[in-house]
Design a protein around this nucleic acid. Structure first.
Length: 626
RNA sequence: CGGGGUGUAGCGCAGUCUGGUAGCGCAUCUGGUUUGGGACCAGAGGGUCGGGGGUUCGAAUCCCUCCACCCCGACCA
């Protein structure tokens, strides 16, 4: 009974030598990892390095901490994966780190497979690089700035375009070295306005970021496509329900961009999906077609109506007993050339800020005109603005521009106009896509108004984002290489991010039940948990558990043996909470029949299996999942 | 950044209105009885009541101030 001997070796006397014990535990864990990587198993050592709960920090909580709002945050705390250090800053305990490493390794393997090279850049970066790119000023409050002892400015890197570009401009000299793609898995810091939901939107987080360099746009497109495929492979292997969506390139600039979203109701992003044309886009970007087809001919004359105290669209509709679709709202925002610009939307539609910012006359970032500015420009208060006799530039959303006989403010307090028509009562407006798409809208790919394609709005957690940056950074930092003609060429770049720590949370959002986490096979901190009943009382139970542990570990599985002197209920509850996919329960009761009990985390029922077939059985279960 | 809320033991909370020197459940430790889905009994340890200042004979409690954390908003004509 090797197990016995080994066990004694590590059970310290009751007086307990806490520290050495802990250190031994940690170094043993490291042994397991390095041995696994090396792919060898010394049988003697194998016995020594058992993952026993008695020596592995299980910090499960029965009660949910009060400040955790979303399920993944609650379960990560309850499962003892993370603990908060400060707002948006977390400790990753051994249990959590094991999951993070699983994610990292899948990402790493697929990145390597794609031909990208792993490297590591510093977390702390000098201000000079950011001044060179212009982002020291542009990046704003999210950039955590600091000074060293010589009062030199530094920041904690929120991203690494500057560092990689400045490195590569020195290292790559010839087109023959291109294309090249470099990645790292590293800690970032973004001083979020409002960190929340645990590691889902943390300030400090782990990200895989990759940067590619090219001679021309075609090469960039090629690598971009490779990355798109790699990302798809990664999220598939992670076992997550995801969707790639067209995305806004935002302030980073560049042309093409896709986000990868894990679909979950708790997601912070709304995405518009159309199955007919396989179109999916972030609602920030999703194109909104005009509703209702061609604009009808005017039927009504303009009428002036007093609307005392009616300042919202809803109030006006109730007051005039008109459908909201026949109203128009006129929004005044700050302009880039004029003080204010009017944006006109149908009453039931919402302005999409990002779309508005794309119009050259609109100031970026979008800013609402103040009541005073509105008074000055129009002569009334917000709530009574309209399109007739407006002396500011007017930009109308496609759907608003298609309206006839609509209702709007009269630019006089407490007065509205009905029966207003573009072209007749006010100039034809400039038409621009301004509104947010809504559920049931026509898909942007639709051929005509009768097309059956419809957008569905679902929610997602952004876990990946790929960009074609173009030459924005290579130009600013002067990253060139020599082309075939010996002439210096500015290298187009791509960048590709994956939120490693966010994936851990997203996976839980998508995979949990009332008992706890239900990990996808590839992410679980342990593949199998052995829960003995009477481990410390029954030699037979202990022998079967130890042997099962040994045999399963030999298969290359991560096995956890729960040798705590706890009642079975506690062990079962913890196993469920931790979400370990496979559980083997060994007790004298079933051993009497030569059997042990098996239960999959995602199954309702346990089943008995021959104790001699444990390894084959587990192998079968694993194959089933994969 | 604006609005709201909360800070009392590792976690969940009561006590604050009405000032009198800190408590409950879980967890932890000891002993015992238990042991197939979060046991029971007995005992024990653990708290600068977020920090500072003030009022008072006396402050978790009242006042001032700072801080931290959480939620909502940043969509309105």
């Amino acid at each position: 009974m090797l197990g016995h001997r080994v066990h004694h070796h590590f059970v310290f006397s009751k007086k307990g030598i806490q520290r050495p014990n802990l250190f031994v535990g940690i170094s043993l864990i490291l042994c397991v990892i390095s041995d696994k990587l090396a792919g060898r198993f010394d049988s003697q050592k194998d016995q020594l390095i058992q993952m026993r709960t008695s020596r592995f920090l299980i910090s499960t909580l029965k009660e949910t901490p009060a400040d955790a709002e979303v399920i993944s945050h609650q379960l990560m705390l309850r499962a003892g994966m993370i603990r908060k250090v400060a707002a948006g800053i977390y400790n990753w305990l051994p249990m959590g780190l094991r999951v993070m490493r699983k994610v990292e390794n899948i990402v790493r393997q697929e990145m390597d497979k794609s031909g990208a090279q792993e490297m590591l850049m510093p977390a702390v970066q000098p201000a000079e690089l950011w001044q060179e790119s212009g982002r020291w000023e542009m990046y704003g409050g999210e950039l955590l700035r600091m000074q060293d002892r010589h009062q030199r400015d530094f920041c904690f890197g929120p991203t690494h375009e500057e560092v990689i570009t400045s490195l590569i401009r020195n290292e790559i000299k010839s087109y023959k070295q291109l294309p090249a793609n470099f990645y790292q898995i590293q800690t970032k810091f973004r001083d979020e306005r409002r960190p929340r939901f645990g590691v889902m939107r943390a300030r400090e987080f782990v990200m895989k970021d990759a940067y590619s360099f090219h001679l021309d746009a075609d090469s960039l497109q090629e690598t971009y496509d490779v990355m798109y495929a790699s990302y798809s492979a990664i999220f598939k292997r992670l076992g997550l329900g995801y969707r790639a969506v067209e995305a806004d390139t935002g302030s980073i600039g560049g042309s093409a961009s896709h986000e990868f979203h894990v679909l979950a109701d708790s997601g912070e992003d709304a995405i518009a999906v159309c199955d007919k044309y396989d179109y999916a886009a972030n609602v920030e970007l999703a194109e909104a077609l005009a509703v209702g087809g061609e604009r009808p001919e005017p039927q009504q004359e303009v009428q002036r109506v007093d609307t005392p105290g009616q300042h919202t669209i809803d109030a006006i509709c109730r007051f005039l007993e008109l459908p909201i679709e026949s109203t128009v709202k006129t929004l005044l925002v700050k302009g880039s050339e004029q003080p204010v610009v009017a944006l006109v939307l149908r009453g039931d539609h919402e302005l999409n800020d990002l779309k508005a910012e794309k119009h050259p006359l609109v100031a970026t970032p979008l800013e609402w005109a103040s009541d005073e500015e509105i008074k000055l420009a129009v002569g009334c208060s917000p709530g009574s603005i309209g399109t007739v006799d407006l002396s500011v530039p007017v930009i109308a959303d496609r759907s608003a521009a298609n309206l006839a006989d609509y209702v709007c403010g009269a630019n006089i307090d407490d007065v509205h106009l009905t029966g207003v028509n573009w072209g007749r009562d006010c100039p034809e407006p400039e038409v621009f896509d301004l509104r947010k798409v809504i559920d049931g809208d026509l898909c942007a790919r639709a051929t005509d108004q009768d097309d059956s394609s419809r957008l569905t709005i679902t929610r997602g957690i952004e876990v990946g984002h790929i960009f074609q940056l173009g030459t924005k950074y290579s130009e600013a930092l002067n990253a060139t290489c020599l082309d075939q003609n010996g002439k210096a060429a500015t290298m187009p770049m791509g960048c590709y991010g994956i939120g490693v720590t966010r994936i851990v949370a997203a996976a839980i959002e998508q995979n949990h039940d009332d008992k706890g986490i239900v990990w996808p096979a590839g992410l679980a901190p342990f593949d199998v948990v052995i829960t003995p009943i009477g481990y410390h009382k029954s030699d037979e139970v202990r022998a079967v558990c130890d042997e099962a542990y040994r045999a399963l570990t030999e298969l290359g599985l991560d096995v956890l043996l729960d040798d705590r002197k706890e009642r079975p209920g506690i062990m079962f509850a913890d196993a469920d909470l931790l979400g370990i996919p496979h559980r083997i329960t060994v007790g004298e009761r079933s051993l009497a029949n030569g059997e042990v009990e098996y239960k999959a985390r995602n199954a309702d029922q346990a089943e008995n299996i021959e104790k001699t077939t444990i390894v084959n059985f587990i192998e079968e279960q694993l194959n089933k999942v994969i």
